[in-house]
Write a protein that binds this DNA or RNA. Structure first.
Lengths: 193, 193, 193, 193
DNA sequence: AATGAATGAGGATTCATTCAT
DNA sequence: GATGAATGAATCCTCATTCAT
C-alpha cells in the first residue's frame, strides 16, 4: 500500500469526500471519521494531511470555488463577442459540475461557515468580488452608471436561483433557472433603453 | 418566585435568545447553555419547556416565519388596489424586523437545518408555497402563463438579495435591495408587454 | 444524589484523587478519567469543576504547597525562642503529612511541571522564596553575611533529602533525614564560630 | 547514501537529540518525531534503531549516567592523595558537562521515569550505590561509624544543589554550589573531631 | 417552577508503532 | 539503510440530557 506520492491523491479524495459528506448530511456537522471513511482512509491520516477538521473544510471550500472559476473561464474562453460575456458568466453559474445538489448544499454551508471562519469569509469575498467585476465589465458598456445596480441584482438572482435548488421544493430546473437569469438581463437592458 | 403564567414568557425569551445566539455565533452550533444563559435561565429549564434542543430551534424557526408572515399581512392589509399586492409583498420581505443581521443569519441557518430536519423542511416549504402563491395571485392577471416563471425569478431574487445581506460584503442596503426587486418586476412586466 | 453545595466537596476529593494518582502512577501522565474514577465521579464532572486537566493538576499543586505551609506555620507557632525557628522549619519539612511517598512523588513531578507551566513555576517560586526568607530570618542573627550561603545549602539539603525518599533506594528514614539537616545546621554554625 | 557504520552515529545523534528535546520541552512528553527531527532522521528510523520510545529514553539515561561516571573517573584519576578523593567526587558532580540546564532537566525527568520504568530505576540505583560507595571510601577513614550519615547527607546535598539549578530561581551558580558542598564536608569533619 | 449536580456518548486530535518499498 | 504512508488506541474535552430536590 504505502507508495510514494500518495499525498496529492489522498488530499484530493479527502476533499471530494468532505464535499460529498457535507452534501449527504446537509450540514458541516460531519465528523472527520465520516469523511475519512468515505475517502477510504483513517481519520488519523486525514489529520496527518490537513492538520485539522477546519483545514479540511477550508480546502473543500477552495476546491468548490476553483471548480466554479474553471467553469467561468471555460465559458469565457468560448466567447467571441464582448457582448456575449454576460451570457457566458450566467451559463457558467448553472453549469452541471457546480449544480449538483451535494455541491450546492456544500456551498450553502460555506456561506454559513464564512460567518465563523475569517479565512472562509476571505475566500468567499474573493468569489463575490470576481463575480461582480466580471458582471460589471460586461454591463458597463451597455448601462453606464446603472451597471452596478443591475450587477447586484443579477448576482443576487443567480445566488437565489442557486440555493433554491436545495432549499425550495419545486424550484426551476437548471435550464429554466438559467433562462430566468438570462431573461432578467434582457429585461433590464430593455428597460434601460 | 414561582409565578403563574411564566411559561409563555420563558418560551418567548428562550426563542428570542436562540435567534440572537444563532445570529451572534453565525451557525446552529450554539449550546443550549448559551441560549439559556442569554435568556437568564438554566439550561435544565430550557429542556423543561421545549423538551430538546431541536425543539428550541424549531420554535425559533417558527417564530421567524411568523414574523415574516405578520409583515406580509400588514403590508397586504394596507393595499387598496389588487395590482399593488406585488409591491406589498416585496416590501414586506425587506421590512426592518426581518432584515436584521441576526434574523438573516438565523434564516440562512434554518435553510441548512431544513436539510437535516424534516419538520424544519416542512415549515420552510409552507413559507415557500405561500410566497409563491402570493406572487402568482398578483402576477397571473398581468402575465398569464408567464406568471410562474416570473414568480420563480422574483422569489429567487428576493431570497438572493436577502441572504447576500450577510454573505456578500458590500451588498445593497435594504432600500436599494427593495428597489432592485421592484425594478425586476417592472422590467419583467414591460418585457412581456 | 444531587445535593446542593457539592462543589467544594467534589473539588477537594478530586484534588486528593489527583495527588494519589500521581503518586501511584509516578508521573503526571495520569488521565482525567483515572483521577475522576478514584474520586468516584465522571471525568465530565472533573472538567465541569476544573475546566481542564491542567487546572486540576495546578489545584493539586496548590494544595500540596498549602499543606506544607500549614505544617511550617504549626511548627513555628509552637516555638518560644527565636533561635528555635530554624529547627522548627526543618522539622516541618520532614513532618508526616508532607512526607508520604505519594506526596513526595507528586512534589517531584511538580518540579517537572514547573518547567512547562508558568503558573506552576510561579507557585513553586513562591514556596522557594518563602522557605529562603524563613531560613534567613533565623540565620542572619547568627551568621551575618554568611547566612545566605548556609540558607542555600540548607534549602538544597532539605530538597535533596526530600526527593531522595523516592529516588534513592535505602535513603534515610524521616527521623534520620531530619537529624542530618539539623546536624548540617549545627556544624555550619560551629564552623562559622 | 547507505554508508557503512552509520548505526553508532545514528544512535548517538538520536540520544543527544533526546536529551536536548527533554531539556527543551522540560518533560518526557517529547514525541519520537521531535527527537528524530532534531537528529535529522525519520521517526521510523529511530524505531528501527531503538525499538521503542522507552528504549530511546533509557539509552539517553544511560548516556547521562555515563557522562557523569566519566567525569568522576577523570577527577579521581587526577588525585594523588587518598584524602583528596572526596573533593574530587564533589567537583565531578558540578563539572560543566553534567551541569548544563538541558542535562539537569533530563536528569530530573529521569528521576520521574524511574518511578515508572524498572529498568530506569535499576540504572539510577547503580548510580546511587556507586556514589555512596565512593563517598564512603573517602569518609570511613576519617569518620568511622559516622561515615554513612555524612555520606547520606552529602549525597542529598549534591542532589539538592543539582536539581535546584533548574527548579529554584536564584540558585547558587556551579562554583558556589560546589563550594557549599565542600563546606558541608569540612564542617562535618570539624564537628566530628 | 427552577436549578445544581451529574453523566454517557461522541468527536477532534495526538502519537507510538508498523509496513511496503 | 531509510522513509513516507498509514492506523489503532488512547485522551481531553464538550454537550445534550436527566434527575433529585
Amino acid at each position: 500500500m504505502p507508495k510514494i506520492g500518495m499525498e496529492p491523491l489522498r488530499r484530493s479524495s479527502l476533499i471530494d469526500a468532505a464535499i460529498q459528506e457535507v452534501g449527504r448530511v446537509g450540514s458541516l456537522d460531519v465528523t472527520v471519521s465520516q469523511i475519512a471513511k468515505r475517502a477510504g482512509v483513517s481519520s488519523a491520516l486525514a489529520h496527518h494531511y490537513f492538520g485539522s477538521k477546519d483545514q479540511i473544510l477550508l480546502s473543500a471550500l477552495r476546491h468548490i470555488l476553483t471548480l466554479y472559476a474553471v467553469e467561468v473561464r471555460r465559458e469565457l474562453a468560448a466567447v467571441r463577442q464582448p457582448d456575449q460575456r454576460l451570457g457566458a458568466i450566467i451559463r457558467a453559474s448553472f453549469a452541471s459540475p457546480n449544480f449538483e445538489p451535494a455541491i450546492i448544499t456544500a456551498w450553502l454551508n460555506f456561506y454559513v461557515q464564512a460567518r465563523k471562519s475569517p479565512e472562509a469569509a476571505r475566500l468567499l469575498a474573493i468569489y463575490q468580488r470576481r463575480l461582480r467585476s466580471n458582471l460589471l465589465v460586461g454591463l458597463h458598456p451597455l448601462l453606464g452608471d446603472d451597471a452596478p445596480t443591475v450587477a447586484d441584482g443579477l448576482a443576487a438572482l443567480i445566488d437565489g436561483l442557486y440555493i433554491r435548488q436545495v432549499t425550495a421544493p419545486g424550484a426551476p430546473n437548471p435550464q429554466t433557472a438559467c433562462a430566468i437569469a438570462q431573461a432578467y438581463l434582457t429585461a433590464s437592458l430593455k428597460a434601460a433603453a
